[in-house]
Design a protein around this nucleic acid. Sequence first.
DNA 1: TTGAAAGCGGTACCAG
DNA 2: CTGGTACCGCTTTCAA
Lengths: 345, 345
Amino acid sequence: MHDAAPAQSATLHDVAREAGVSIATASRALNGSARNVRTENASRVRAAAAKLAYRPHPSAQAIARGSTRTAALVVGDVADPYFSAIAGGFSQAAEAAGLIVTLAVAGRSPQRELEIVRTLRGRRPRVIAVAGSRVDGADTRGALAGELEAYQAAGGRVVMVSQRDLPFGTVTVDNAGGAHQLARALAGAGYRRFAIFRAPASVRTSRDRCEGFAAGLRASGVTLDDRFVIETEFTRGGGYEAARKLAERGLDGVEIVFAVSDVMAIGAMTAFRDAGFVPGRDIAVAGFDDIDSAIDVTPALTSVAVPLREVGLAAMRLALGDGPATDTVQISTGVVLRESTPGRR
Amino acid sequence: MHDAAPAQSATLHDVAREAGVSIATASRALNGSARNVRTENASRVRAAAAKLAYRPHPSAQAIARGSTRTAALVVGDVADPYFSAIAGGFSQAAEAAGLIVTLAVAGRSPQRELEIVRTLRGRRPRVIAVAGSRVDGADTRGALAGELEAYQAAGGRVVMVSQRDLPFGTVTVDNAGGAHQLARALAGAGYRRFAIFRAPASVRTSRDRCEGFAAGLRASGVTLDDRFVIETEFTRGGGYEAARKLAERGLDGVEIVFAVSDVMAIGAMTAFRDAGFVPGRDIAVAGFDDIDSAIDVTPALTSVAVPLREVGLAAMRLALGDGPATDTVQISTGVVLRESTPGRR
DNA sequence: TTGAAAGCGGTACCAG
DNA sequence: CTGGTACCGCTTTCAA
């Protein structure tokens, strides 16, 4: 006994034969634009299709009409709540538009990101959205831009999520503005001795937040001691490490830490606690993003709310909209004060 | 001035012409199986391809060779750390295998899940992995099974993630066993008056964990009062609500809550705290999954560790492996005791 | 309204 | 080893 040949799924051809019409008619009845099929024929075709469990072959359609029904999203790391929230919004909007989402994970490497965009482009999605952390000065940047430009020239829609540094449609988050406001609010709450946990300067998001924060302090007349601007990894682990070191030195007189992302801030809080300091009492902590778990940690984390789902939705809308392909949509942010920064005095 | 025609990307045809060879040779040089192209020709073709920035058209390849290079993953909700961790593992393994991941979000609705699988199937991915929360008794179950069977009969690989209740390859998590061990450990720590926060009985994962836990209590000689088996939503909000109500009644003498997932448990802890009870001191809490944030909440959450990334990896391996299409891989779980259950006495 | 037929971008078999 | 060519499944003129 040998393997049964895998049952091939029915093709349009089969449906047409079953319905006793030409394959052209079948095509028109099942998908077609101008509905010019006699109702009787149409229903016979539909019946045949149902009977045979016919499914159109998207690849065939794609190649025949020169366009697909997919939207591609590149993220740094799906498991990071920042990206997964964006992905949630994006895929919701995509589904609403009848598009299937193709997800690629770049693992925060510009090199990998470039490879991915190259591959993706070959698949001719209707839109490519890139939500990785843009990194300055990467030698791959020019190549990435070139790849995306070529894709766009061939009719694709490009959307960048985060900062505008390439000439494509962009959904920006008001990182600098949010950080500025946060700094003012914290200075207003009486804090004077700040530390900042930031990612390497090449990470744009981190840099923008950091600069906005510094500007906000300046505007509030607070001096920021550069020794306390600590560079670490843009992850929970990075936040943990930075906090651990600071705690080892007995906090060095620092009253409050601003970490450029909530995951870093949360890691930092745990590190402080592990070292015997009570976050919110011995040391205040603030983050950025307002991810879901910000309200579930103790004390609840002060943060800058970024409507991440909305960012994903906006990216899709921008891609599908008929505005110029280089529009920028700015998503605004807002300070949320919680118990991790009770204030001084 | 009118729109420039979108620059079409180069086709194999163009490459062949540029290289001065036939399109068949070009195809062989660029992709082909048996490499039987004179080296000189091969390099000319490659040069031409590079010059023209040629990318093979996956849809065309798919239709020509009758198979795609994609793997589809259906999840309940990308933004849920449970699913996003699985998605992370899955896409890592997929990339390693040269497959592109197509992600669909079913929003925890069996109806939507069915529609999605239908659509997905049409796209002929190499594998379809379904990680949604399997729900018993949904009238769509038979239809789902039928759809997947047809897909499999046509040569596709199906992998279910969670429990084995359909005759496909399955990655199961030892939900019952882990919950059983957890119950024994907690009973051993001196707890006697338990409450359980569970999802509706139709949600298999929840039921398995619940039953395993109850069995573990029985094995430890602890009686579980049915009044304290509380049904709620399988989300953070569900955990929060259940805890809020319990707190309203002054905890009713309950010493410890087992929530069938960490997100529920974390929501519950926040609710207890909001109501003025200190988790870990006034009321112990345990969860399941051991998601990342379990160690960042206060007190750190006792849980059952489920290696979620590993689940995703295993799903992909199972799909690509050449074992029988109905293999089951069991992912084992382990109790992690933390400060949210300090023990009594 | 309908069918025939010419592609869409590639693959693979078959002679040469 | 290489080119010619028949498809793959579907869409879309073009005539009838």
